[in-house]
Nucleic acid binder design. Structure first.
Length: 261
DNA sequence: ATGACAGGCGGGGCCTGA
């Protein structure tokens, strides 16, 4: 017997460019917790006041120009920045928070997994980051609490997660080693919230800006919410707010959200 | 094969993204 908690993830591709969209969508979707990626600004440049005025607590792990993650919460939260396992890594890609509600807590992470295209060094960084994520996720599972790892994984898990999988066979988002590493994470005991609630085709979260990808529905599914067993037991629904991709000057990603009962 | 878009930085185009 607990309240429903609505948790979402959205790669906004610059929070300052997308502030009006974000505020509109917060009113429309009424999420309790929102994981943002690619905010592309330092902590001090984050539009904190506007978002607090909408009723959210704000935790930011920012960086100049690139990357950057944040968590917004209508409920009280305690946040901690950074993925353990490499003290030399300066890229802001991981933020974790414990959110408190009437019935207990839910632990939520905002994840911006490296893209991995652009050369062997970048792909090696992606794979190493995935290794670190799996190790950290394994330790979090031992807590045996509701846990949601939400974000832009830059992983197309299966052929059905792309409109045209043949276009992606040489891409870091879909290479066999990428998908193997992602499966190893899942096999620790996580549930993919969207796949747990639908077997429909054409379920996408990203459409490239170029070549009329949105118009032609040339999408991919790369934004995921992975649930611990304790969270999966409470999964009531999952949905993708695809219509946001049709707004003026949109992000190339759309929000994905779940309700936990 | 390249670029098509978009954003940041910074005042040029270049880097990055997926």
């Amino acid at each position: 017997m607990g309240m429903t908690v609505r948790i979402a993830t959205w790669n906004v591709n610059s929070v300052r460019q997308r502030l009006e969209h974000l505020l509109t969508w917060l009113k429309e979707a009424e999420p309790d917790v929102v994981c943002l990626q690619e905010i592309k600004c330092l902590n001090e440049a984050f539009p904190r006041l506007e978002i607090e005025a909408a009723g959210y607590n704000v935790a930011v792990h920012g960086q100049k120009t690139f990357n950057g993650v944040a968590i917004l919460s209508r409920l009280p939260m305690e946040a901690q920045a950074g993925l353990p396992g490499d003290d030399e890594d300066t890229q802001a890609r991981y933020l974790e928070a414990v959110v408190s509600h009437d019935g207990g807590v839910v632990r939520v992470a905002s994840i911006y997994l490296p893209n991995g295209n652009g050369g062997p060094e970048k792909y090696a960084y992606k794979l190493a980051w995935m290794q670190r994520l799996r190790r950290h996720a394994a330790s979090l599972l031992q807590l045996e609490e509701p846990l949601v790892l939400a974000g832009d994984y830059n992983v197309i898990p299966e052929p059905r997660d792309a409109k045209t999988p043949a276009n992606w066979t040489q891409d870091a988002l879909f290479l066999p080693e990428t998908r193997t590493k992602y499966r190893k994470l899942i096999h620790l005991g996580f549930t993919d919230a969207v796949r747990a609630t639908t077997d429909a085709g054409d379920v996408f979260t990203f459409w490239d800006y170029t070549a009329g990808a949105w118009r032609r529905n040339e999408g991919i599914r790369i934004d995921h919410l992975l649930l611990s067993p304790q969270a999966a037991d409470r999964l009531r629904s999952a949905s993708i707010d695809s219509h946001v991709r049709g707004w003026d000057k949109p992000s190339d990603h759309v929000p994905v959200r779940i309700d936990l009962g």
